[in-house]
Amino acid sequence: MSGWRGSLLGVLFVASMSSILVYAFLGYPELGFVRPLGEFYLFNTYNFENQDWWSASPNAVTGLLWDYRGYDTLYETMVFYVGIVAVAMFFEGHAKLTKTGGMTVIVRATARMVFVFILTSAFAITIFSIKTPGGGFQGGSIMAIAYIAIIVALSKGFLPEMNIDLEKAHIAKIIGLALIAGLTIVPVVYSLASGSVAYALQNQPKAWAPFGYPTYLGLTSLSGGLIIPIQLGEMVHVGMGFTIMFLLLTMKERED
């Protein structure tokens, strides 16, 4: 199927498929229409008047991520975990990381400083995701950049200097996941122990389900209940996951 036959088939396929889709879309509302369910989340996410329906997070997207539709995000995290397993399963078991010396003191010190800066911003983006754009995944991506930058700019051999290797990355990733899973299970265990109604991943108490995590983590500015700790877990998971993926893929390249 080459030459003009292929292109004719392509044009026909695209034309018919897109006209079917356009036919379906013609009855849709015009650009700029926000659906009532979206306005419900906007109205209720940080509404002190009616705390039965709030997520205690001023950022509505973060509230959706780990409260209203938290169970989706839990398994979205697990899908990402499958992605890491994919790379680990196919490319693990090659060379081990070895320390390469030879960097000057200045290079090492600068690398450490940049590293600390990036990690700090990752933490900030994760923790303040209830008030500003951001979240566990975004923070984790930035955290991974701290390690990936070192691999790209210096070398893989520099990673042991930063106290990280594959095994430690795997363990840290699993600790992050365990934090997420633990926070998910706590309401279920509470329900089994006390006999009252509580649902998996429940964040704030409601009239029909009294279980709730404390709304403020010590400071009055850090609201959101379970959202901040669970985002930290996701940050570690995602950051370490990206680091593992990148490490294994670069190792492969070096060998062949």
């Binding site: 369910l37 979206g38 008047e49 995000t73 899908v79 890491i84």
Partner: peptide
């Protein structure tokens, strides 16, 4: 909150996109 609800964009749509982007990454890795 009611003023906010009448001028902000839909967070639900954004939520779906955030989730799908992460899932897309896993697809690409696999």
């Amino acid at each position: 909150p009611s003023d906010f609800a009448s001028i902000a964009v839909d967070p639900l749509a954004h939520y779906f996109v955030v989730t799908a982007v992460v899932i897309g990454l896993a697809e690409v890795a696999t």
